[in-house]
Simulated scan of single mutants.
Amino acid sequence: MDAAAVFQPHRPMLLRVAYRMLGSVADAEDVVQECFIRWLDTDRAPVQRPEAFLRRIVTRLCLDQLKSARRRRETYVGPWLPDPVIEPDEPEDVTLPLMLALERLSPLERAAFLLHDVFGESYQAIAAVLERDAAACRQLAARARAHVREARPRFAVDRSKGLAIAEEFFAASRSGDIAALGALLASDVTVHSDGGGKRPAAIVPVIGRQQVLQLHKALAIIFAKHPSQLLETAVINGLPGFVTRESDGELQTTAFEIDDGRIAAIYVMRNPDKLRHLDTWRRASAGPGAHANLPPRMD
């Protein structure tokens, strides 16, 4: 079997590893492509487990990439959110809040946690990837686990219920029904919007039900004059949400963290650079019998 035939079945897994390390679809794709080039140049005869070997290459490339990524995020305009990815139907292993918690870890802690807790690698195997001994890798993962524990959802949300709440939120927010909107929100709800300095967005999170309702009172006036189009309700980075086409022609994703039946956090992606991969796929897939509204899935 040639090198490409061995590599291709592992590509989706490698993309998941790279995306969860980097939070960027484009960067993940670049890393996986570089991994493929290195695979072509490798003496493959001694490789007994290509999956583990390729995951090791991707993880090391991501660790190198994170050094420059951290510097870029220090000058980022407003809140930084990972690229939105429309998830498969099965429950997701890494949600958006967890990815944000991973951002606060060191690159080595992040790698140890993801490889062990998410992808099921042994500490011995992780030691070979990180060039540390197994005991050190165990400590890295334990420290990471302690930091991200609070990001795990306390209440599992049924997919259909979560998407129904997302649809209710869209209807209430676009119609200006503030009473209906307020009934959906937790008292300490937060809104995080990422415009990246490219489109209007709050440069700090909006915190508290009253402040979020004030924001949506103002937005309702804008929506009345410049309506947005609901393309799809979907699971976005492990959270229920929806994809819209806004009046400026750009896509937008909105994802909801739901706690005990109420919306506890709202994550709005407006940065066109982070949404381009959705629109590119949508245009490419729009043909006879194709559903033009569906953004891409990472499965």
Rank of each mutant, 00 (worst) to 15 (best):
A5H: 11
A5K: 11
V6T: 13
G23I: 12
S24H: 08
D30V: 02
W39F: 13
R44W: 12
Q48V: 13
Q48K: 15
Q48W: 01
P50K: 09
L54W: 03
I57C: 04
V58F: 07
T59R: 13
T59M: 14
T59A: 15
L61V: 04
Q65W: 14
L66V: 07
K67Q: 15
S68P: 00
T75M: 07
L81E: 08
E87C: 15
E90M: 08
D93H: 11
M99Y: 04
R110V: 03
A112R: 09
A112K: 08
A112L: 10
V118D: 01
G120Q: 05
G120A: 07
Y123G: 07
A127S: 14
A128F: 13
V129P: 03
L130H: 09
E131V: 09
R132N: 07
A135T: 09
Q139V: 12
A142Y: 12
R143E: 11
V148S: 11
A166E: 08
E168F: 01
A171Q: 15
A171V: 05
A171C: 01
A171F: 06
R174A: 02
I178F: 04
A180I: 06
L185K: 02
S187M: 07
D194S: 06
R199I: 07
Q211M: 12
V212C: 09
Q214W: 10
Q214G: 10
L215V: 02
K217G: 10
I221F: 05
I221K: 13
I222D: 02
F223S: 05
K225F: 05
L230C: 09
A234Y: 02
V243G: 05
R245D: 04
E246L: 12
T254C: 09
G261E: 11
R262N: 03
A264E: 13
I266N: 02
K274G: 03
A284M: 13
A292D: 08
N293M: 09
L294V: 09
P295D: 07
